[in-house]
Design a protein around this nucleic acid. Structure first.
Lengths: 360, 360
DNA sequence: CGGCAAGTTTGAAAGCTTTCAAAAAGACAG
DNA sequence: CTGTCTTTTTGAAAGCTTTCAAACTTGCCG
């Protein structure tokens, strides 16, 4: 590839002039200006981002660290970030951590040596981001934390309003007449899982409904977790008539477990998830869910990063995005007791993991 | 951040020696060797990838260009590529093209200036990759094309065995007794869509089943396309009893349209998709599909790229990955004519878009 | 037309690494 | 202990850009 020297020679100007034209860093008078532009055109020249980054002490790359692009919630987050980044001339380096903080650390250490414009991070389990980010901060590189926060995080962040979302979902179930509610949360060391549980709790408390500890089960944010914890919940007496799941993957597991137990959703068990993934629309019944926009999470974080880069040095921002309760077919008022009993009895014989309901 | 000079000073050696230790590029005798390593440890030094890339004329970055990470087939491809890349010390720059070849060109031009180790590309619609890749080839940078190929591509590629996959799916439907088959293909300028149609055709031909042109509809690879083309198909006389969809997103649209027409899947219409996305498992009925491993597509491409980098300069490779027909609940033998008629008649009244079936 | 201020242009230096020719050190034989 | 050969070590140069002090032009006024 051609380099700047060549352009300078072709246009009959100095190196500095070429740079000035390319970056608008100083006025260049007319005859030369176009000569440079023409030479650039003719040679199909594009400046080396490496050399530029080295000299400027920063590149146009944004490091994006996420647990796993394969988890259906994250692609839209990444896409949101990429869209804003791209349209401002920035590019994304994608790093998966698998929620492993060791892997996260490797990425954090190496990314630094690319002199990135900034970092957008969904912290791993037990992330040490707070400590690591220190050296980025010192170098003037922005780090925005999204979706959930590591311990003691005090920098910029963008998260969903998990608490209110969970509160609204729970309240809706209560308003429908449910009194036997249960929840299956994600790992409670994750702030988003914890906040959702808090929202659930608040709604229960406000309605003066008791919440025995075994009605709040903790598991990983996936289908298997949802499935096995639902089996536990369905064996409880009294059996819950509504389950609020920590996210849609869990909710999916709940749905499958309910079905496999010979119960029906929503007649026997109402379900609400969180995230509003596409796959929730096509299940049967379709999943109600607390909708949060992953895309917006991504765009907001990227925008925040770029603002910082333009010199915004106001104190740390904590942006909280609204959620929206999306009602589909997985919720209904609780059935009358005898209705439940007859329907379960009829279908229970087929289920492989029949619950042991008692009716009192 | 510390730089090499500092390490050299701390260890009391020269710049070259530090470099030699760090890269094992020459033997360094014992006292100095450990002194360098200790200094590196102490300073937490990590070499600047920018400077290194500039000097070496190549970086450890792999450009990954895909249409849209938000499309549920692609995340696993990306993940596969990232896993192989990461474990070999490479990183991924992710670029979405939205199938727009102009955007693709922007990425291709800019990525070059990062001196990437290679490129993995799922070409956009009407991609000009073949021409663009020329300059990469000249610079000795590998470019691997996956999933589908641009016009006149002669470089390395990894694709699924679309033809055989489609052939097997179609044959299965035929063996079940279906004689009224239809297909909804993706955009036929895409090689994968075209190959799938060819496989479908071959199975039809072998079974001596006629295929009127209106029974092969072309659309985009998405739910909407599948939905609207299904509406067209269901109005045909005779109405198809089985539809082979160009991918699972289309198949999902087919399923919805069938349902909305007051018909049942699989009793009235059998459906097979392609890709075997997760969301196909949770629909009702669950979707049968030709399974291809996006993850493997990604890992294979990355591995190929790394092999090239190690000096493998054998002629262009065209790796074709096997597919597997995954049967779920969306396929069944065709019902008897009168059975169809009674069931449709019963349910049709509820559908908003009733088909006009005739029975002959 | 000379002088001066303001506006342009220049080119060396810097940013951090790798590479490689040359110098230094070490090993060994005589 | 010297000379020769081999192995290590050194440090300047190169890779490509941006930056900035200095040199040069231009325009204007008297």
């Amino acid at each position: 590839m051609a380099n700047m020297h060549e352009i300078a020679k072709r246009a009959g100007v100095s190196l500095g002039t070429v740079s000035n034209v390319l970056n608008n860093s100083a006025k260049v008078r007319e005859p030369k200006r176009t000569r440079v532009l023409e030479a650039v055109q003719a040679a199909g020249y594009q400046p080396s981002q490496l050399a530029r980054g080295l000299r400027r002490d920063t590149t146009n790359m944004i490091g994006m660290i996420i647990p796993d692009i394969t988890n259906p919630f994250f692609p839209s987050v990444v896409r949101g970030a990429e869209d804003v980044a791209f349209s401002n001339g920035y590019r994304l380096i994608l790093c998966n951590t698998d929620n492993d903080h060791a892997k996260e650390t490797v990425h954090l250490n190496e990314l630094r040596t690319y002199l990135p414009a900034g970092l957008i991070v969904i912290p791993s389990n037990f992330s040490e981001l707070t400590a690591q980010a220190e050296s980025y901060r010192k170098a003037g590189t922005g780090v925005v934390c999204i979706d959930r926060l590591p311990k003691h995080w005090s920098g910029d962040s963008v998260t969903a309003d998990n608490k209110t979302g969970a509160y609204n979902a729970t309240r809706h179930l209560i308003q429908l007449g449910h009194t036997q509610l249960a929840t299956i949360t994600g790992p409670l060391h994750l702030t988003n899982a914890k906040e959702r549980l808090e929202g659930f709790r608040r709604a229960m408390k406000e309605a003066k409904l008791p919440l025995a500890p075994e009605y709040a089960q903790e598991t990983s944010f996936d289908k298997q977790g949802g499935y096995s914890k639902t089996q536990v919940l369905l064996r409880l007496i009294p059996r819950p008539t509504a389950i609020f799941a920590g996210n849609d993957m869990i909710a999916l597991g709940v749905l499958l477990a309910v079905r496999d137990s010979g119960l029906r959703c929503p007649e026997d068990v109402s379900i609400i998830g969180f995230d509003d993934l596409d796959l929730g629309e096509t299940t049967n019944p379709s999943l109600s869910s607390v909708s949060q926009s992953g895309y917006q999470l991504g765009t907001t974080a990227a925008r925040l990063l770029l603002d910082r880069r333009q010199g915004d040095d106001s104190p740390a921002k904590h942006i909280v995005l609204e959620t929206l309760l999306k009602l589909r077919h997985s919720v209904a008022p609780p059935s009358q007791t005898f209705q439940i009993s007859s329907s379960t009895a009829r279908r229970r014989s087929k289920g492989k993991q029949a619950a042991s309901p008692t009716f009192n």
